[in-house]
Write a protein that binds this DNA or RNA. Structure first.
Length: 558
RNA sequence: UGGGGCGUGGCCAAGUGGCAAGGCGCGGGACUUUGGAUCCCGUAUUCGGAGGUUCGAAUCCUCCCGCCCCAACCA
């Protein structure tokens, strides 16, 4: 059994429980399931659950099912089903042949409902929704029994069959479990098992007009599939007694439900309702807006599945409410991309640089390293000429303290090219710098300072060879770490969460970049080709995450 | 005033009677043809609080305080 423990992944109480259950023989292997309702897109919080569910199964050589919890046809669509499948696959997990739907079990669930009726454990109730609420009592006041609670088994059976046959209008009757109207746990006050909904289901069509409630469907679905550990979030802790009650009343195989705290991420919102609101009210461009915490959004932004998995591993699994700093997510992406993304030079806000002593009409190609972290990535040629573009931020007159970049009379290295010295500036009528002039040292080709101290190295692009692109810079979607906290959370949307730069100049090797390609733009950050708006000849890049910016910190302090 | 949970540094989080892991962040330094990366160093005499048990407590007991979830025919 020690073999099971010899893993280097961080432990958590769920993994420990699984280990115990194996040791004690309660279960022979590990079977988990990820059970999304297809009524929205998956987000980073779901990724935590997916990594837990699939990760646990993988670790113990078990299996993890993908099961759609599709018991509410009014809200669920195949569009969401497909999007969810794509997201789980993209994250890197495989459910193999184990794709299921709660709706696969509608027949079985129905039979089980009749079985409960026959045992006198369920009854058809005629109370209206308002009455049901009223009879339920409150948190501190016990509920009252429905006047229909003690109907005879035969009458219940007859009524239930007629409910299924469509004889009664929507909402007019329910099937309820007969448990305890005085229970402190409201879930046990005769929970509804079935409601009448004459709505077509995306998979079963018009076959049914009664649909099972979550509690009645979930545990039994787990049981049917032989799930051992049914992992869910804390708000279902109160449902566990009901989960167990149904299983026991039916006398069927019993999985074990264990709850953990859901993920809260700073500077964003995570509830499906709020995400949907952002989309519907046009505060973002859609579910896959690169600012969204959805997997579709993160993917489009340029996040890698590996970075997200790493993040999910690092945040841990526990039961305490939490608010994880989004900086950790960003860190995980940088760490992943630092090793894998090829470097390129791109000038986001161009400023013209003229090298006065560089022969007019002359041109050459210089060698640039594709990835200093990965020698195998090789090198490439970058064209150099008399007129270049440099970043507006890389020239200051006068220079602030500790500024290492270009300013009048100062030397700086053009990455992989030459050492240049600023000799002059041209300004427009408003005093804005329009062109910077400089002289280069022909002997410093490649950037060799030959013993000189050159503190600054800046990136550049040859003006004549540059490729134009649109670059979208993203920042946190919300200005507050916990926008959820306030009623008017929508006013907290960061007005600078998206900045569009239309005049960016890229080195020519970027001309053929394909949707989804990721690069590090030297000294700036990691960027990926937008999968929706980019096209050959009209490149659009998204900034996935910026590089650590030490200068920004220094400047902010002075 | 009912039921279920949770409280370890700024944020996550190990630890479950033997003397506070780790990560992010933050601060400092080294190195550097990305002010990137990397590498060092620092960052809780203390575990929500107060009592108690014990040679010894974040871990056990008692009381108190705070926070979260539950009153959809949603999941």
């Amino acid at each position: 059994m020690s073999e099971l423990e010899a893993k280097d992944k961080p432990s958590n109480f769920i993994r420990d429980a699984a280990l115990e259950d194996l040791k004690s023989g309660r279960y022979k292997g590990i079977v988990t399931r990820f059970p999304p309702e297809p009524n929205g897109y998956l987000h980073i919080g779901h990724a935590k659950a997916i990594c837990l569910d699939f990760g646990l199964a993988l670790e113990f050589g078990g299996r993890c099912h993908l099961r759609f919890d599709d018991t509410n046809p009014a809200k669920e669509t195949t569009e969401y089903v497909e999007a969810i499948k794509a997201d789980v696959r993209w994250l890197g997990f495989d459910w193999g042949p184990h794709l299921y739907h709660a709706s696969d079990y509608f027949d079985r669930l129905y039979e089980w409902a009749e079985a409960l009726i026959k045992k006198g454990l369920a009854y058809v109730d005629d109370l209206t929704p308002d009455q049901v609420a009223e009879y339920r009592g409150t948190l501190t006041v016990p509920g009252r029994e429905s006047p229909y609670r003690n109907r005879a088994v035969g009458e219940n059976l007859d009524l239930f069959r007629r409910m299924r046959a469509g004889e009664f209008p929507d909402g007019s009757k329910t099937l309820r479990a007969k448990i305890d109207m005085a229970a402190g746990n409201l879930n046990l006050r005769d929970p509804v098992m079935y409601r009448i909904r004459k709505t077509a289901h995306h998979r079963t069509g018009d076959t049914w007009c009664i649909y099972p409630m979550y509690d009645w469907a979930h545990g039994q679905s787990d049981s049917i599939e032989g799930v051992t550990h049914s992992l869910c979030t804390l708000e279902y802790e109160d449902h566990r007694p009901l989960y167990d009650w149904y299983i026991q009343a039916l006398g069927i195989y019993a999985p074990r439900q264990i709850e953990f705290a859901r993920l809260n991420l700073s500077h964003t919102v995570m509830s499906k309702r709020k995400l949907l609101q952002l989309v519907e009210e046009g505060l973002v461009s859609g579910w896959d807006d690169p600012r969204m915490p959805t997997l579709a959004g993160l993917r489009r932004r340029g996040y890698t599945p590996g970075a997200i998995r790493d993040f999910c591993e690092r945040i841990g699994i526990a039961k305490a409410d939490n608010l994880v700093d989004i900086a950790l997510l960003e860190h995980c992406l940088r760490e992943d991309l630092n090793l894998r993304a090829e470097r390129r030079m791109a000038v986001l806000r161009p400023l013209r640089l003229i090298i006065e002593n560089y022969p007019e009409g002359h041109a050459e190609e210089l060698d640039a390293v594709n990835n200093p972290e990965d020698p195998g990535a090789g090198t490439r040629k970058v064209p150099f000429a008399r007129i270049l573009y440099i970043e507006q931020d890389d020239f200051r007159d006068p220079p602030p303290p500790k500024y290492f970049r270009l300013s009048p009379g100062v030397e700086v290295r053009l990455r992989y090219a030459y050492i240049v010295k600023c000799t002059g500036v041209e300004r427009d009528a408003a005093g804005q710098v329009t062109t910077v002039r400089c002289e280069y040292d022909p002997a410093s080709r490649g950037g060799d300072a030959r013993g000189r101290k050159v503190k600054g190295t800046i990136h550049w692009v040859s003006a004549a060879d540059a490729v134009d692109a649109e670059v979208r810079l993203y920042d946190h979607l919300f200005t507050a770490p916990k926008p959820d906290e306030t009623e008017d959370w929508k006013t907290l949307v960061n007005p600078r969460s998206l900045e569009v730069l239309r005049g960016a100049k890229l080195e020519p090797s970027l001309a053929g970049a394909k949707a989804g390609d990721r690069f590090q733009f030297e000294r700036q950050g990691y960027f990926s080709v937008d999968s929706r708006d980019s096209a050959p000849g009209r490149l659009v890049f998204n900034r996935a995450v910026g590089l650590r910016d030490t200068w920004a910190k220094i400047e902010a302090k002075t």
